[in-house]
Nucleic acid binder design. Structure first.
Lengths: 226, 226
DNA sequence: CGGTGGCGTTAGGGGCCCGTCAAGCCCGGG
DNA sequence: CCCGGGCTTGACGGGCCCCTAACGCCACCG
């Protein structure tokens, strides 16, 4: 899966972590000193470094600084020291996370997952799919194979509200209040008109809506596919 | 600098954090409930979310999950609960970091710096092409075959904001706020005038803009070619 | 079978938003 | 003092969006 370097001078922690990580499919490199760590980091490409600050040779913060000189690999620092100044120094030197010993293995593994998750580019924008349409909430645009689907501001607000509550029923009152304002909670005509426009633009068969569903007498619901 | 949302139901922490962050040049949004947090996150683009789990309405982990449904913004979780299970749940829901209350402000600020640092790749191609024009963001210059295109400071700020968010819609409010300042969020005339000037200088056919696109009633968008 | 309430659909007009132009203002340099 | 570039302000025309209202449809029920 990923390649992880564990730097610690306690053999038992090294062993325990190695077993846990390997069991999850990661490749594990081990080092017991700062010099060894830097040597390995320069030799093999790494996805994550777990670094104990209490090393026999080099000060851990210096190791972080040296690594940051040429590498952007995420670094999780472990340390027996709990003072704020130590944490600030390590984080500002370039570390991504700081855990104080003793720590729970579950928490460390969770922080490792978090670090690896955000390290993987995952460049794809967070996009909601709706049949053949892609809804990009960040860019505020809807596209499909034929190009861009043009939505008016009101149409977009309505769609956004429903899509941000996938599978959940949104009451007419709630829709009217957030899209048109608190003074319009009885103007249910607006809903009918704009839902129709959205369905005409986005549904394959607007007469038989599959994604923008009506719950009669209650409200509307965005139904994500499968 | 960066735009940060702080979610907490303790007014004092909200105030203290707001002051510290604003003093460092960040824009700060505040919310006291999960619903308010989600509403703000949907309205303004954010660079970081600081989220207290002990909210009066929605469970904090649910807020994390909801945000992750459409947003990749880094999330730092604050909580009074120290159990490993809580940390693992929040981190696996998509949080980037987890701090237990009470915490030191210096450490929190250091973790905020770390989160913002790794979020901004900053090595984006400093030169963007826009038809026959080359936009050098680092040198703040626009050139084409005929030489340099002279832009006024305001024109450049506007262009830079749009180009730094390629494909994304930038609201009129946001443009006015970042280019002219918070007191000018209603002066939409400025936008019309300066967009026209930019298009006259940069677009092949200023009457039919291809790169600096208007989204009526919402804002503007820089459309990179293919 | 006729009434009723809720929903879908359509079309048109008024008004808002945007693009454009030009004149006035501010300020620093010649 | 004048001058020029950049910024602000206002006016105007056109296009598009929002609202509105009317009608048809369906389900339900007396």
């Amino acid at each position: 899966m990923s390649r992880i370097l564990v730097v610690d001078d306690e053999p038992q922690l090294l062993r325990a972590l190695g077993i846990s990580l390997r069991a999850r499919g990661h490749g594990v490199e081990a080092a017991a000193s700062g010099a060894a760590a830097l040597e390995i980091a320069g030799r093999v490409p790494l996805d994550l470094v777990i670094l104990d600050l209490g090393l026999p040779d080099i000060d851990g913060v210096e190791v972080v600084r040296a690594l940051r000189g040429w590498s952007a690999t995420p670094i999780i620092v472990l340390s027996a020291r709990d003072a704020q100044a130590d944490k600030v120094a390590a984080l500002d030197a370039g570390a991504d996370d700081y855990m104080t010993k003793p720590f729970g293995m579950d928490e460390l593994l969770a922080r490792i997952r978090a670090a690896l998750r955000r390290a993987t580019p995952e460049l794809e924008a967070p996009v909601v799919t709706m049949g053949r349409n892609n809804i990009d909430l960040a860019a505020k645009r809807v596209t499909n194979a034929e190009g861009e689907v043009r939505l008016t501001p009101t149409e977009w607000q309505l769609l956004e509200l429903l899509v941000r509550n996938p599978g959940k029923l949104v009451s007419q009152r709630q829709i009217l209040q957030t899209v048109w304002g608190p003074a319009y909670t009885t103007e249910t005509n607006y809903l009918r008109v704009y839902l129709a426009q959205l369905r005409r633009k986005l549904e394959d068969d607007p007469a038989r809506p599959r994604y923008l569903v009506t719950e009669s007498g209650m409200g509307y619901r965005f139904e994500p596919d499968t």
